Amino acid sequence: MIVPGPAKLLRGLALAALVVAWAWFAHQGSAGAGNPDFSVALATAPVAVLFVILLWRVGNPLGSALGGLAMLGLLAWSWPALRQNIALLYYIQHLGTNLALAALFGHTLFGRHEALVTQFARMAHGGVVSAAQERYSRQVTIAWSIFFLANAAVSSVLFWLAAPAAWSLFANVLSTPLVAAMFVIEHLCRNHFLPPEDRSSVADTIRGYRAAMAARRQNTQARHP
């Protein structure tokens, strides 16, 4: 068992604290108990950061500057409306994230694609997976697709039919623990259904995920230099 160093442990604790703080403030804002301006800023920050990263990758300083100004102008123009619809803003974010993740996993189950978790397993095992690993990893890909679709469905039902606080508790507070629970359940299933030589640790899975994402980025950059 590898014990993480102090720096890595501190980074992990800081990240965990950030996730908990974000969930709590998002819950407060969605339930109508937080500061409206802070809640809007918190909800739009991830999208703004992603947009800035995309602009940075364009490599055109003038285009990046104009795009950044356009983003700021759009935020300023829509800010009053966003302040009046904080719960809806978080709902769209939660729904979009889960549908995007469901699509990320699900689309690899059709056509000539290799199931996404199979790709992770292949990366974690030096490019070679057994027949048992391939069958199991495909089932896990299906499970994650269903999980994210179910999250989106439950979120929608609660948002439109339940009290804002009930929806926010599910979407903002329970989302991360539910994902963690899925990882734990999958780990237990892996140990039950796969022989020891075909099993991989959580660290192996994370390395496989990172390697797969890096390969995807390289392929994308090669197609669109």
Rank of each mutant, 00 (worst) to 15 (best):
A65D: 00
A65E: 04
L66S: 06
L66F: 08
L66W: 07
G67K: 09
G67D: 11
G68D: 05
G68R: 06
L69I: 12
L69V: 14
A70L: 15
A70K: 05
A70N: 03
M71W: 13
L72T: 06
G73Q: 03
G73I: 01
G73N: 03
L74W: 10
L74D: 02
L74R: 05
L74S: 12
L75V: 09
A76N: 05
A76P: 00
A76H: 10
W77Y: 13
S78H: 05
S78F: 10
W79I: 00
P80Y: 07
P80S: 09
P80M: 11
A81D: 11
A81K: 10
A81E: 13
A81W: 13
A81S: 12
L82M: 15
L82V: 03
L82E: 08
R83S: 07
R83L: 13
R83F: 04
Q84Y: 00
N85L: 03
N85M: 02
N85W: 02
N85C: 00
I86D: 07
I86H: 01
I86M: 06
A87G: 03
L88H: 02
L88C: 01
L88R: 06
L89V: 05
L89Q: 04
Y90L: 09
Y90G: 02
Y90R: 01
Y90S: 01
Y91L: 08
I92D: 01
I92G: 11
Q93P: 00
Q93L: 14
Q93A: 14
Q93D: 13
H94E: 11
L95M: 11
L95G: 00
G96N: 06
G96V: 08
T97G: 02
T97Y: 12
N98I: 01
N98A: 07
L99E: 04
L99V: 11
L99T: 02
L99F: 08
A100V: 09
A100E: 04
A100D: 02
L101V: 11
L101E: 11
L101G: 03
A102K: 09
A102N: 07
A103R: 01
A103G: 12
L104Q: 07
L104E: 04
F105K: 06
F105T: 06
G106C: 08
G106Y: 05
H107L: 12
H107C: 09
H107R: 14
L109E: 10
L109N: 09
L109G: 07
L109Y: 09
F110H: 11
F110V: 14
R112G: 15
R112H: 12
R112C: 03
H113F: 12
H113R: 14
H113G: 06
H113Y: 12
E114W: 01
A115F: 04
A115S: 13
A115W: 06
A115K: 07
L116D: 10
V117G: 03
T118L: 10
T118H: 01
T118N: 07
T118A: 15
T118Q: 12
Q119E: 13
F120G: 01
F120H: 02
A121F: 13
A121Q: 07
A121L: 08
A121G: 06
A121R: 08
R122V: 00
